[in-house]
Design a protein around this nucleic acid. Structure first.
Lengths: 202, 202
DNA sequence: GTCTATAGGCAGATAGAC
DNA sequence: GTCTATCTGCCTATAGAC
């Protein structure tokens, strides 16, 4: 039902809205902002996304798909758990370098004001995310590539919390470089036993 | 210039606005919301805080004072570093149990839309916070009460990031209990060497 | 210090022409 | 699919009486 031109416009709307949500939050951007960014009238936006809730749901759905795809591509690479985790950390780092917050981290802050369906989709993002991480952590531990105490699931939660928080605090404190320090700390924590840096492999 | 009654009203306004900011964010509450909560007309609010920016600045200033006071009271207690850190974690936990986000964590999400003066005050919150934590970590390490790799400052950043993120993700995923798991993980990480739980002290 | 009334602007959303 | 025009409601903020 949507021809090529329509699909392209919808995507451009999603691109603009995504950037706005990730930098300003769901309540701090308007159809007027998207209108300016895309070069289309406000009313026309409603043709593609009838309500702001519809737009929000489409944004989160697309973001989740994109994130899952990125996770799959991480698994397509090296099988070493530490490398996979490093690429996972970099997934967040690349978002921050665009001066954006993780979309679902941002929406987590806005959660009290979101339509219920959006809240559920945001919760699913975290669930999917943590499930993938827990699997990678578990496999890595079984292969002896990484070490950690407690369950893989709780370690996965810890990773996600620390990375989301590192993005948040980096933005709030104005020191984006702090994200990388947190990322390195997180990886060091699973790499060896309380790693003092080693000159050469064990 | 402000009599007792005035001061009390200003405090009640700050209390209501604080709750709203911590649950909804700075852009998602209005003078109308505060008006309802306090039981005073919207226009009267402007007598106490002429603009929303003024209100926001007063909120962050008060929050910073309160937080620093809480930090001082933590230092008044036991000198054991682990206990101080546990009480520090609990400072965040008690906020989350009220279904609130750390005010400055919330404002960190809103940072792109905040007046510059508010942004600076939010950045100062994180700086003060991390300076205090770094001192506690440093002293604890010197006394041999805790262990960690890297500088006290980077460990302090890691603590703050993880705790802010744990609050954010707990709210976003709807699983408030995940905060406590992160808090425990953080404390376990400094308590001993890759601590398997010990039955009795060393 | 608090009130009523209102200004002026922007929000999300709709109607209907093209 | 995009446009112009418009609606209704809420926003921050101000004026001025009491």
């Amino acid at each position: 039902m949507t021809n090529r031109r329509d699909a392209r416009t919808a995507d451009r709307i999603l691109d603009a809205a995504e950037r706005l949500v990730q930098t300003r939050g769901f309540n701090a951007f308007s159809y007027a902002d998207v209108s300016k960014a895309v070069g289309i009238q406000k009313a026309s936006l409603h043709h593609h996304f009838a309500t702001k809730t519809d737009l929000g749901l489409a944004l989160v759905a697309r973001y989740r798909r994109g994130f899952l795809e990125a996770l799959r591509s991480i698994e397509a690479g090296s099988g070493e758990a530490v490398e996979r985790l490093a690429r996972y950390v970099e997934l967040y780092g690349s978002v921050l370098r665009q001066k954006r917050m993780c979309m679902c981290g941002m929406l987590a802050a806005d959660v009290a004001t979101l339509p219920k369906a959006m809240r559920q989709s945001v919760a699913s993002f975290f669930a999917e995310n943590e499930a993938w991480l827990a699997r990678v952590l578990d496999e890595g531990k079984l292969r002896g590539e990484i070490r950690f105490d407690g369950s893989a699931v709780s370690m996965a939660d810890f990773f996600v919390s620390s990375l989301e928080g590192a993005m948040l605090v980096a933005r709030g404190s104005g020191k984006l470089e702090h994200f990388d320090a947190v990322g390195r700390h997180l990886l060091a924590g699973v790499r060896g036993a309380r790693a003092r840096p080693r000159r050469r492999p064990g």
